[in-house]
Computed example of a mutant assay.
Amino acid sequence: MTERVGLGIATLTARKDRTADLAEALRTAHGVDLQSGPKVSRAGSLAFVGTGPDTWLAVCEDGGWRFARDLARAVEGRGSVCDQSSGYGVLRLSGPNVRDTLAKGVPIDLHPAAFAPGDAAVTLASHVGIVLWQVDEAPTYDVAVFRSFAASFAHWLVASAEEFG
Rank of each mutant, 00 (worst) to 15 (best):
L102S: 02
A161P: 02
H111R: 07
D62P: 13
A47W: 04
R78F: 15
T140I: 03
D70E: 07
V131H: 14
W56C: 04
V135K: 10
E3N: 06
D21H: 06
F67N: 05
H111Y: 01
P38K: 04
T140E: 06
A29H: 06
E24P: 07
V59N: 03
R4K: 12
T13N: 14
A103M: 05
T28K: 12
G31P: 07
A161R: 07
V135T: 11
V90W: 03
G79L: 08
L22H: 14
L12P: 10
G37Q: 03
L132M: 02
R78T: 15
K16Q: 05
V122K: 11
F153V: 04
R147D: 03
A23G: 06
L132H: 02
P53M: 09
R99I: 01
A144F: 12
A58N: 00
A154D: 08
A138M: 10
T51S: 01
S148Y: 05
D136A: 03
A161H: 04
F146Y: 15
E3T: 14
F149E: 08
V131E: 10
A159C: 10
R42H: 08
P96M: 00
T19W: 10
S126T: 09
V122H: 13
G63D: 04
F164A: 00
P96K: 02
L46Y: 06
V49S: 15
V143T: 00
A161T: 07
S45Q: 15
A116H: 13
W156S: 14
D142V: 03
Q134R: 13
A29K: 12
A74S: 04
